[in-house]
Design a protein around this nucleic acid. Sequence first.
RNA 1: GCCGAAGUGGCGGAAUGGCAGACGCGACGGUCUCAAAAACCGUUGGGCCGCAAGGCUCAUGUGGGUUCGACUCCCACCUUCGGCACCA
Length: 829
Amino acid sequence: MSEQTQTRQRPRQTERYEPRAIEHKWQTRWEADALYRTPDDDPRPKWYALTMLPYTSGDLHIGHWWAMVPSDTQARFKRMSGYNVLFPMGFDAFGLPAENAAIKNQTHPSEWTFRNVDHMRTQLKSMGAMFDWQREVITASPDYYRWTQWWFLQLLKHDLAYRKSASVWWCPKDQTVLANEQVVDGRCERCDTIVSKRDLEQWFFRITNYADELLDFSRLQWPEQIQLMQRNWIGRSEGADLRFGLDIPGVAEQEIRVFTTRPDTVYGVTFFVLAPEHPLLDQITSPEQRDAVRSYVEAARKESEIDRLSTDREKTGVFTGAYVTNLFNGERVPVWTADYVLATYGTGAVMGVPGHDQRDFDFARKYGLKIVPVFHHPDWDGGELTAALGHGGTMINSGPFDGTADADAVRTVTAYAEANGLGRRAVTYRLRDWLISRQRMWGAPIPIVYCDDHGAVPVPERDLPVLLPDDAEFRPTGESPLTYHQGFLHTTCPTCGKPARRETDTMDTFMCSSWYQMRYIDPHNEERPFSRELARKWLPVDQYTGGAEHAVMHLLYTRFFTKAARDMGVLEHDEPMVRLFNQGQILGPDGQRMSKSRGNVVAPDDQVERWGADTFRGYLMFLGPWDQGGPYDPSGINGVYRWLNRVWNVVLGETAAAPLPAAPATRELRRWTHRTVRKVTDDLGAFRFNTMIAAMMEYTNYLTRLRESAAPVDAAAWDEARTSLALLLAPAVPHIAEELWQRLGKPYSVHTQPWPSYEAALTVEDEVEVAVQVNGRLRGRLTLPTDAPEATARDRALADAAVRPHIEGKEIVRIIYVPNRLLNIVVRG
RNA sequence: GCCGAAGUGGCGGAAUGGCAGACGCGACGGUCUCAAAAACCGUUGGGCCGCAAGGCUCAUGUGGGUUCGACUCCCACCUUCGGCACCA
């Protein structure tokens, strides 16, 4: 009985795929073996792959996996392709949320931050990524921010840092500075008080010195749209600075300068506008207009820049009572102030030319100001204007310049201005110098001491870091505790030793993330931010990946840092990251940004627990194109899990194998193998992870069908197939690949194996299906030998039973043949 | 508002000038099971014709255009997403 039962048993079942067991096993083994330690002295060519470091927000988010898994996959692919790959990880750990948590929990922000780091590191490890944790960097730890402070001192030394007054949001009730985020509809998010701008002395970096160089992308392989966004952000404008005469009793200044891209319209100036923040505004305002101007300025200080720059909005402004003289024609024009003029752009003043600028036109219409066209535009009938005129035509109403053609106008007028001292050629940028001061505690302290005798004195490098106090008291107002921490505040002047006061502002966290890629190459160096030799070896980053939300600010700041470092003799290259890829944003299942308040958060830990890291990794990459993002809908993940089970069964299952090298089925099997190797290789290089997974699924389905057909297959070709599949899987799903590799009896580790290559000759089909169209409509299909000549295809198509009814009795005008794809017969009648 | 991007079956998507819907989810039908789940197999854009094999036709946000041929290129519009300088 028992014997009979045994003989009736099916052939031995392979062990089931148990992701949790094998993932834990291999992660432990990899760590014990230091498989992902990146040596500095490896002779292979280096490849520095970097993904943007996470902020220490508390919990790892689906978005972190979404960002890091494909990066890890590509870094692993590069490693197998023969590179010594550096793929580090760290934490962006300073910033506002830590302070909010500190106020809420009455703790020190460092407590919250470092607890989050520990938790997130554990979560990150469950990803099975090839991060080299020996190189971890935490921007809020003193051995890191010491060097952030060092960078500040270098920039200061090289005149790339300076102090000037700039405005911040201020809540009059809480007596505190607010971030933009904390201002909701013009009110303080905490107490609902209407907020206003307030001026403070703050530190800036001269990023505008590099504006022109930052416009040069010739050495970068960055996406076109990112280059475009950066170009638009920098916003280079050529034009002229023109002088306008000022003659007001009691005002020292004799002129106001204005930047314009249209100096050729200067004879059309009928008014003049100063930004509400313009330094001369108060002085030139007449006593009768003072109250009106003051209340207008005050109102403008409550508005955001986005609102002020909206072209949608009705223009507002107030007459100052003053006049300036147009030095070209001696005319006096009224000076207004209006909030659509920003103090931070150009000279903070605009010459109003309503005939040729739409904003000025709208403004003039509203306030009944004169409109004088100075070009006879071809579309203009000479009547009253209904909108500003664009470029084109010849100059009129412009004294000596009348008759000058549009194409020559700017040059001619600018030359005249320069020759007569009325102005000069000028270039202006939309880009502003980088304001790095933050009136907050949880950031790297700006290493400056204020002395009554010596002013702002830099802290000597040997005294770095300027440590944050660890006993700071957080008050519910959100005011920086550094401002009332006596131990921090009081110090001595480095120059004279007299009592002095520390700078209590800290640095913008974008500073920390502007140079972190440099620290990873030498993270434990106590003498310098990094060694020169290691910089020469590892930098620049070969492939950077991260969210498109950083397209402009972070990516411009780090480019600036690199260029400044080059000019300061710290680095020898020009650009921080040679290649860039921006992934899209992953959203909650409801298509909204994931957030606890919306209740649409899908926790990655739960997904890993339920399906295993490999399935989750594979699913994230399979979801769709990486650069697009979109909602994370967990309902399809079982498809990837099923696939990995099929992989498991087909690679480890038994087949009837025999030496059949010449069989047609062998040729087909090898064609599948080599085509899949080619497809996966190409997709990995091009960030097409979704189609890479799909190609491996198709291959697995083919192998499964082949195995289940029970027909004998060539032993060598079958071994090539399952070996190749295990290797192709290794970057995307590293744990199952390692397990399969071991069970196939191959030497540890699959991740140190060379990437499989393909033979192009083996990928070619013998026959292809060619579509036959008549007038662009599909009418039939032909099976033809690959690369069949046109004559063959044409003859077969014209004789085809499905095609003939559509061409009979008609004149064939033309035949278009695309080999191996399509033949289109164009008929008439 | 300004700058950048994206709109394709019930859903995620594939195809970047050449057979629209690869791959997967879901759904439906089946196998197994007392049953359910899981697993596996089959079908699956809409409409029309046909017993069937199959055929015709409509369809890639909307409206135009270029082309033998357009999801793909051009123009206009609509919607959604990212950024707008102190969220990171």
